[in-house]
Structure formats: structure tokens, C-alpha cells
Design a protein around this nucleic acid. Sequence first.
DNA 1: TCTCGAATGTAATATTATAACGCCTCTGAA
DNA 2: TTCAGAGGCGTTATAATATTACATTCGAGA
Lengths: 136, 136
Amino acid sequence: MHEHAPKSKLELTRNQALVFDALADAGGPLTAYAILDALREEGMRAPLQVYRALTKLMNVGLVHRLESLNAFVVCRHPECSSHETAAFAICETCGQVDEFAPDEAVSLLQSWASDHKFALARTTIELRGECSSCHK
Amino acid sequence: MHEHAPKSKLELTRNQALVFDALADAGGPLTAYAILDALREEGMRAPLQVYRALTKLMNVGLVHRLESLNAFVVCRHPECSSHETAAFAICETCGQVDEFAPDEAVSLLQSWASDHKFALARTTIELRGECSSCHK
DNA sequence: TCTCGAATGTAATATTATAACGCCTCTGAA
DNA sequence: TTCAGAGGCGTTATAATATTACATTCGAGA
Ligand SMILES: [Zn+2]
Ligand SMILES: [Zn+2]
Ligand SMILES: [Zn+2]
Ligand SMILES: [Zn+2]
């Protein structure tokens, strides 16, 4: 679980690479079914094919799931050592997503977990609002 | 939008009160359909009745939505002045949810937003892991 | 009384995600 | 060399979550 090893698309299977490229080309979040529709011509036919590829891509750290959107984005972390603790600013006007690494905020949350004997497995941090381009 | 005024169940309609009580009685998160099933005998028949009540309850600050669970919980904030900035620790073993107010972490996120000219509307912070009771 | 906004009831449908099954391919141990 | 297990694949069906559309009812003011 959470292999986290490669962080490269070298070892991807055909379906995994197709899904990754579709997400990367979109330049923003896509739902699983939007990915499926984008890949009909490449032979992708069933939701499960997409979900399986997404699961793998998330495990190796190439893709994030946006919980508040039920959608997926490629990881934009420079090195993504902190893949499990990324945060996302989601513009509700244009749909753009900005991934960032709120290290101090995450350590405060880790401290809370530690203080409360909560065995933290992963955190979801998502900011909703309007990005600078849209908010003039 | 986001009336945020009452924070009491005094002004609730019948359906809203039924949904609130079902959630409060559960003592933990419930999905909309679980609430519906719990309220069949009280006359609740359609998902939309539940979703409409939940929307209202969230607007007045009595209920939170857990994005990573597609479920809902009653607000446990003492005063809940910071209803929009609550965080949740979700035990993946027993399902228990602990709401807390990570004020310092939230201000760091607000600073990030401010620094990046992102007009922050609301934040989602959810910790997944195992609670102290389960993690022995 | 009138009227407007909120809430309701109901049916139909859309969207998101998983279960269950069998097959194939690779790889490493016997 | 064989063969067992793990992982991936394709397909069908179904489960779980959420919304659209429309008609009706309720309740607090004007
Ligand atoms: Zn990342
Ligand atoms: Zn924008
Ligand atoms: Zn709260
Ligand atoms: Zn627990």
C-alpha cells in the first residue's frame, strides 16, 4: 500500500499512462467519467478501468483526489516528498486548482493528532474560493 | 446564503428537526440515505427531503458535511463561532469523528490565501486515521 | 385578504463508485 | 521447467450519492 516509489510514469501500464496523460493534458481536475469520455477513442470503455488506473496513480504519488469535487488532478509538487500532506486551493469560478505544501499548518495538525493519540494516516486540506485571476 | 444566525433548533421545520435529531441520535456521521432510512417511519420518503433539510442545517451552522466520507455530522463546537473553519479527525476503524478548531493552522492557510490573492470562502480539513480507543 | 418566499411531496434522472467474474501475463521459488 | 501468486485487464451489472423539474402548501407580513 502506498508504494510511493517511482514517481515517474516509466513503469505505468497502458491504461495508467492513458489516464495520467488525459489528466495532465486537462491542466485541471477531471472526474473519473470525464476521463473515461476523453479516452473512449483510445479504447477505454468502462468506469472500472479508469478507477483502477486512478487508484494506482494515487498510490505511486502521481495523482491526487480532490474530495470536495469528486475529481482528480495530477500532482504538481516539485518533488512531492510531501505527497500525503498537500493542500489545494480550488477556484469555484474557473475551476483552476493550485496545489501547495502548507508545511507549518500540517505540523500543527500532526501535533494535534499526536496530542490526542490519533494515529494520523492522511490529511485532506482543500480551500474553496476565487482565484486571483477571477477575483478582480 | 450562510445565514448563520440561529444556531439553535428552535426555528427548524419538521423535516429539518427530524434530520437533525436523527444525526444527533446517531452520535456520529450518517450518509443522507442512512438518515432517510432512519426516518422512513416518520414519513420521510425521498432523498430530496433529506438533502434539503441538510442544506438548511448546514447553512445555519448545526451540521457539517464530511467531504471525504460523503456524510454529515452535527456540529460539536462549543460556540461554533468558527463553524466555517472546523476540522475533523475521522477514525477509519470505528467511524468516530472528533471535531476540533485548529485555529493556528487555519490562520496559516488564511495567510497563504491572502498572500496568493485567493478569496477564501471555506476550508475543508479532514484527518483520517485511527483514534486512541482503536489504536492500542 | 393578498402575496411572496420558503418549504414540501413526488417522480424521474444524473452522477459517482464498486462487486463479481474470468482471463492473461509476469515473476520468482521449487 | 513448472507452477503458484500477484497484479493487471475486460465486461456486465449494480450500488451509492445527488440533482432536476414541477406542482403544491405553508406562513409571515403588507
Ligand atoms: Zn502532490
Ligand atoms: Zn478562477
Ligand atoms: Zn462545528
Ligand atoms: Zn476508533
